[in-house]
């Protein structure tokens, strides 16, 4: 429990009851709807997902009592031996390898460029942020138009256009999705870095330029270490967002195509869990994905902390 001095002198209760319940016990009532919401929508489903993943769970009509026996790790064994699932986890690995570094580098560079006193600053900030506030379903429409076989991108590239085209090419489908997501989310991460850049001390830049460091050097030695906490956050959030990938492979590559080359774990989870009616299998995929993301986050944290 946090005990700070805020609110001192305000409480009317006093005495022993106040030390147990706090000075304004009415606060409990104020947060109750929110806590109930969190319990119903986050905590309980999380526990329920783990439960399903260890049972032979299937859909039944509401109110019908059916036996759903405990099956140990059977669902996990089924999931891990499913080539489509393995493929989707490999795909998301490729996605993250492209998306996360690209996001970090581009958003830091653009934020750095934006941080100077520059003409049209508001215009730039706004234009970078527009994709982030727009529905993916809407933007996917125009990307389909741009990147289809006869689309504008291939017209401009002419003989350099890939064959088969971007979204139907098994080597390029996932990278194209990764670039799409980088583009769509970048504005948000630029703003994170912009906020972090405000905290980098001007004195450090001055000291660096006194020492005769070039701009590139001072960017590398002052800016990059100065925004390290933001980088940790950007990497974490980009990883979590990436692990959630669903809309883009579902729509952009027509359901994770070609031939599963851009299928994401959430897409497979949806197909197995809901389309094919095996929520126990779907839950096992979900649990594995959470564990994967947690592991990845811990590794990233270690690596980023050690560098500093």
């Amino acid at each position: 429990m946090t005990r700070d001095t805020r609110g001192r002198g305000g409480g009317r209760g006093g005495g022993e009851l106040a030390t147990v319940l706090g000075k304004q016990p009415i606060g409990t009532a104020f947060v109750t709807p929110y806590v109930v919401f969190l319990a119903a929508v986050f905590a309980y489903p999380l526990v329920f997902a783990v439960y399903m993943s260890f049972h032979d769970y299937f859909f039944a009509a509401p109110g019908v009592v059916v036996d759903r026996p405990f099956v140990g790790f059977d669902n996990y064994a089924a999931v891990l031996s499913d080539p489509a699932v393995r493929r989707s986890f490999a795909n998301i690995g490729i996605f993250l390898l492209i998306n996360v570094p690209l996001t970090v580098v581009l958003s830091l560079l653009l934020a750095y460029a934006l941080n100077a006193a520059i003409r049209w600053r508001t215009f730039f900030r706004v234009s970078y942020y527009v994709p982030y506030v727009t529905a993916s379903v809407a933007v996917v429409g125009v990307w389909l138009f741009l990147f289809n076989s006869n689309g504008l991108v291939n017209t401009v590239l002419g003989p350099l256009a890939p064959d088969p085209s971007w979204l139907v090419n098994s080597n390029l489908a996932m990278p194209t999705v990764a670039i799409y997501v980088t583009w769509k989310q970048l504005g948000f991460f630029i703003l994170l870095y912009l906020a972090a850049l405000q905290n980098v001390s001007k004195d450090l830049y001055e000291a660096a330029s006194m020492d005769g460091a070039s701009r590139l050097k001072s960017f590398w030695n002052v800016t990059v270490p100065g925004v390290r906490p933001a980088t940790t956050l950007v990497v974490l959030l980009a990883t979590v967002t990436g692990a959630n990938l669903f809309t883009e492979p579902y729509l952009l590559t027509g359901g994770g195509g070609p031939d599963g080359a851009s299928a994401s774990p959430v897409l497979i989870m949806y197909q197995r869990g809901i389309e094919q009616g095996n929520p126990d299998i779907g839950s096992a995929i979900g649990v594995l994905l959470v564990l994967g993301v947690l592991t990845l986050a811990l590794i990233q944290r270690r690596l980023l902390d050690r560098e500093s």
């Binding site: 986050f42 959630n244 959430v266």
Partner: peptide, 17 residues
């Protein structure tokens, strides 16, 4: 930081079924 999509299966079972 909890990815919402990961809860879709249990939420679907609870809310829909």
């Amino acid at each position: 930081v909890i990815p919402f999509q990961l809860l879709t299966i249990p939420l679907y079972v609870l809310i829909v079924r």
